[in-house]
Design a binder for these strands. Structure first.
Lengths: 343, 343
DNA sequence: CTGCATCAGGACAGCGCTACCTTAGTGCCT
DNA sequence: AGGCACTAAGGTAGCGCTGTCCTGATGCAG
């Protein structure tokens, strides 16, 4: 009533639309769309005109409209079990660096090491019609698996390896990392070797398994020296478990920790309690977090290619999203034993 | 031609739509929409019917269609300067915990302490028509400021405080945190107090300023004992700067570090070099990261309410997005000095 | 000079949802 | 009993973009 010819339609966003760009450039909206997307064949001259018009109007596509019209989003979902672990931050950063420049949006989900929470995240993110999923490991609920399968959305698994047909994964063998740890400690002449793992995700268990197997092969396996707890991995917990283990088994002379946090905690408690590292006990960590090389004594650890895994996983995803097959679907990025003072 | 009545339109997503839910429930699509959103007045009986139908079909709204139709997304953008710093992880988690249950999607942007990168992120995320911005601090480019202003999108600033009119912020006074640090060290009878800061974001500078002011007031300020570097904060850097400072000024008897990483690095180097903490030098950190209380000696630090800041900021955002004014737009969450062995 | 293949560009419709307006139905006051 | 306000539900249209045709122009062989 107040303004009969109200052209300020409240339902519009107020931002310039493709139509306006097309009008300014003197072409049809479809041509403008094609020009901006760089698809199909549009005369170079027109492309330039459209780009100039878009720049002039400060035009940015409306992702919602694009997703609706094409039934395809430009987002890739990454699900990680934790953010408080610096481990995954490096991987996420690398993924961002690869996907963002290509116009993809990265949606991050943290499932807190809970299979149910991961299933929930998957279900919710499905609504966004993501173009791809970057998932951590292979341990998930049956429903999660079915959802992924049914969705037909490309998926790359990170951190672990699985040579099953049709699986795209980038990681390293957690099992042989555990073996390497054992071999290193054995090569140092240690006789009573222990494994301390927390959180007990699939990867921690696999590393423990590799460690155990190598010890069994060397005839040095003792199940009493395997400390596993589902509690969340932390520096404090590492110190606690370390002291407990030494109290129960004073003859232990080497410990492989499933995680650097735990190992760092052990080093600190050793300092506090006058336990000589590595003389009395050799300590080996896992992941090689930035702080480890600064510990007293400097912590030996197995360095994992977190950044490289993220990068390659994202690159595989780009290939898959382009509709192509990945040449090497199972990519072993290896790991590197960093020998320092603690062993 | 091959199939005259092809109902498998390739442009559809294949997922159930609101129409199908409505049909199954025996109501109109609009009623179904309203029932699922819980808006307007829909008979309880119908709401139940619709919800049952949605559940049966495993229906999830199409966010793209919703955003397009309502010219409003359900996403909130959070921009943080770093993810490798555990500091912001706690804040992000808290934000997630508040916004996700309310149906909002959290988009995380990391601007790596770069004003230009933040400006870019802002520009890109504007395209998503976010419902709100949660930003870190007040130090940004003029264009960023203008963009935010022009967009008319509600904005809550985290970590710092500013009582300017119309500003919503949740944080604490970085300045008085610096003052508190100085007062604590002075109360321990220390005479030669130093400040070591890295990264040099606005907050680190403000803490340094507070520290300096308190020292000046006590007549103990010496500009030579202020070590500032734009290099990225890290454990290694902390140790390095610590040793350098002590070599240049052997009489220093207390150091306030702008960051716990730096302080932790200093503690480790002190151990390695036989420097007695706190006897020779008292060391005070900032942020109270989880590891600090486990250091040898246990690190005194200023605990910052990272989780609470995220929670309150998100809650303010909910209020703003609902179109309401926030009762207390400037929320000081305080900080807590944790006195441990290192001071 | 005609006929056909090729290609650039455009018309049209529709993705799935919600804002807006309208209609049908209810109760209550005069 | 009639009229009115009010509420519940539906009809209609359109958000901004792109997939699928289709048209008209161009080039080249016969």
């Amino acid at each position: 009533m107040t303004s009969p010819k109200n052209d300020k339609n409240t339902r519009t966003t107020g931002r310039p639309t493709l139509n306006e760009v097309a009008r300014l450039a003197g072409v049809s909206p479809i041509t403008a769309s094609r020009a901006l997307r760089g698809v199909s064949t549009v005369a170079t001259e027109l492309v330039e005109k459209v780009q100039k018009a878009a720049l002039e109007l400060n035009y940015v596509v409306n992702p919602a409209a694009r997703a609706l019209a094409s039934a395809q989003s430009h987002s890739v979902v990454v699900l990680v079990p934790s953010l408080s672990n610096l481990l995954f931050i490096d991987t996420l950063e690398a993924i961002h660096r690869v996907l963002t420049p290509k116009g993809f949006e990265v949606l991050i989900g943290n499932f807190h090491y809970s299979r149910d929470e991961e299933e929930n995240l998957l279900r919710n993110y499905m609504a966004y019609q993501p173009r791809g999923f970057l998932l951590t490991g292979f341990d998930r609920t049956e429903s999660s698996r079915r959802m992924i399968e049914a969705s037909n959305i490309p998926c790359v698994y990170m951190m672990e390896l699985d040579s099953a047909a049709g699986v795209n994964c980038v990681g390293f063998s957690q099992l042989s990392a555990g073996e390497t740890a054992a071999e290193h400690l054995l090569s140092r002449g240690r006789k009573r070797l222990a494994y301390i793992g927390a959180q007990l995700d699939q990867r921690t268990l696999l590393r423990g398994e590799g460690f155990r197997k190598a010890l069994q092969k060397a005839g040095r396996y003792d199940p009493d020296l395997e400390v596993l707890t589902p509690r969340a991995s932390s520096v404090g917990l590492g110190g606690e478990l370390f002291l407990q283990l030494l109290a129960a088994h004073p003859d232990v002379d080497a410990i492989f920790f499933g995680n650097d946090d735990l190992a760092q905690g052990a080093l600190l408690e050793a300092l506090r309690n006058g336990i000589k590292i590595p003389e009395q006990v050799a300590i080996l960590g896992f992941n090689d977090l930035p702080m480890s090389e600064h510990m007293v004594p400097r912590l030996s650890s197995i360095n994992t290619p977190r950044e490289a895994i993220g990068r390659r996983a994202a690159e595989q995803m780009l290939t898959l999203m382009a509709g192509n097959k990945v040449a090497r679907p199972v990519e072993d990025m290896g790991f590197e034993l960093k020998v320092r003072e603690s062993t």
